[in-house]
Simulated assay, not measured.
Amino acid sequence: MCGRMAVTVPIDAMAHVFDAAPSNDLPQTPDYNVCPTTQVAVVSGGADRARRLEPMRWGLIPHWYTKPNDGPLLINARAETVLEKPAFKSAVHDRRVLVVASGFYEWTKDSEGGRDPWYITREDGAPLAFAGLWQAWTDPKTGETWHTVAILTTAANDAMQEIHHRMPVIVEQKDCGLWLGEAGKGAARLMRAAPEDALRWHRVDRAVNSNRASGPELIEPFDPES
């Protein structure tokens, strides 16, 4: 799965990398502990519209929810079943975006059940582009409309299996147009695990286990023996 991430790329650099015009209300960077229900930067686009870098709430809210917590918190969507789930099956055809991050966190357990966090990035140091699905949700009480997003996940590749059995679907730069719907059909073939050598990871301090933690030290390598 993907339940926490870090974004250290400046907004202008993010816009340049993905050739997207930035909106004025993007979440500030750097943020070393991006949690569900907060705003994340996504790249939207399509065959008939220019790319935009815009904010969306992480945690897709289906249109039939009467309030944000009317059901499960949908921060992830499984690639294997996304076409079957009512919350996602229309979005996967018509509402695909890229969720931009520098890295993400996963956890393993030690012999006593303690949660050890790992920070995972691209091997080449480039920003990550997670395959995302979005949904507009309108609050029936206030009339306010939110744009909300979930990150697609798939079975982890063999290398990643030592950390977690799931991983986010990562879209390569050359495939961004296909995922966004700019380059015709065939986006389904992108819903797969990244190559074995695409990612690297290191242990980080358990401080990140708290969703209130912040600061660059959260992504620094940690040696439990030191």
Rank of each mutant, 00 (worst) to 15 (best):
L74I: 11
G215L: 03
T154M: 10
A213H: 04
L218K: 05
N209K: 05
A101E: 10
T121N: 06
T8S: 12
G3L: 10
F222Q: 03
R192F: 04
P221H: 09
L73N: 11
R95K: 14
A21C: 01
V42R: 03
A20L: 01
I170L: 08
T29L: 00
L128R: 01
Q28L: 05
G186Y: 00
L218T: 04
W179K: 11
G177V: 03
G71L: 09
K85E: 06
T145W: 09
R166Y: 02
I219L: 05
L60P: 04
G186R: 03
E123K: 12
R192D: 15
R49K: 11
L60W: 02
R200N: 08
W179T: 05
T81H: 07
R189K: 15
D19A: 13
H93M: 11
S23I: 00
I219K: 03
I170E: 02
L178W: 08
V99H: 10
I120H: 01
A188K: 15
M5W: 04
R206G: 14
L128Y: 01
T154Q: 07
T145N: 10
P127Y: 00
Q135G: 06
H147A: 13
G186K: 03
E220Q: 14
A91P: 04
V100N: 08
A131R: 02
R115T: 07
T142C: 11
L199F: 04
K85I: 02
W58L: 06
G186P: 09
V97M: 07
A198H: 12
V169I: 08
R78P: 09
A198R: 15
E225R: 15
R189I: 09
G132K: 05
A21Q: 06
I11P: 02
